[in-house]
Design a protein around this nucleic acid. Sequence first.
DNA 1: TATATAATTAGCTATATATCTAAATATATT
DNA 2: AATATATTTAGATATATAGCTAATTATATA
Lengths: 139, 139
Amino acid sequence: MGNLLKLFSALSDHNRLRIIAALKEYSDLCACQIVELLGVSGATTSRHLSILLQVGLIDSYKDGRWVHYRLNRASHNYGQVTDWLEDQLYQTATVEKDRYALREIMATDREDICRKQRGEKCCPRKPEDQIKELAHVSS
Amino acid sequence: MGNLLKLFSALSDHNRLRIIAALKEYSDLCACQIVELLGVSGATTSRHLSILLQVGLIDSYKDGRWVHYRLNRASHNYGQVTDWLEDQLYQTATVEKDRYALREIMATDREDICRKQRGEKCCPRKPEDQIKELAHVSS
DNA sequence: TATATAATTAGCTATATATCTAAATATATT
DNA sequence: AATATATTTAGATATATAGCTAATTATATA
């Protein structure tokens, strides 16, 4: 029973469903791309990914400093649920919007994504400061 | 997306899974029988049933003061998930234990069940008081 | 109509969880 | 070895939820 609860709990968060939908769309995404898609902190994304890893819905591999995530197609017995879920997710407005965002993200160099995320981290979210920072980064 | 979240959240509680398993076993149970099975308060049971009703996993009908609950076999599109779930639940230790408990409950007159539940409600949970109460009920 | 009863809703509380910043870890570069 | 970087973990906090008692609602009975 505990595994069933873990599975359904894992699927009870909108960002985690978005992750699954994104990994269905692109078979392999790295953490920074997922952070970019979700628009939440790296820490939160990592936590969500950890939950999905724990129940076996996704798996991961390292490529240097990069960590890639994929849907886990083996070694679990809830393919019936995930097949159904993926169909359902495909039709939702949020996931459709994500699809467009993902196109941009996949067209962007990861280094650029990370640079942007790093920048955001070290600067407070003040509009004037952000403009100054962007000007500084450009020069 | 909201409906998916509601569905998975509804399935993320062990007592609600037990309700589903019980309704798979016996096609029609009334609230007091479910209260008896779960061993939680009537209010808590009612709340769980309300959540399952809301997502359409179960439906209900009234018979005087009695309210009966059944699995909802129509008008929803997650049969693929619930079929799988029912199979999975069948194999869990908790549900197997519940199966025995349900046999007793189904063999007991509902009036007796309710009388017992009412009795429990109006008396504090003191061991000596419970013994006295049981002795009183027996006589 | 008053009383009894099964069930539901309201309100409160303890516990679980999503989110964040900071710190730590793993890997790469100088 | 020091520094940089991607990611994860730790710790704190706001929000959500399971459980309870009390109050209310819906139905039955006297």
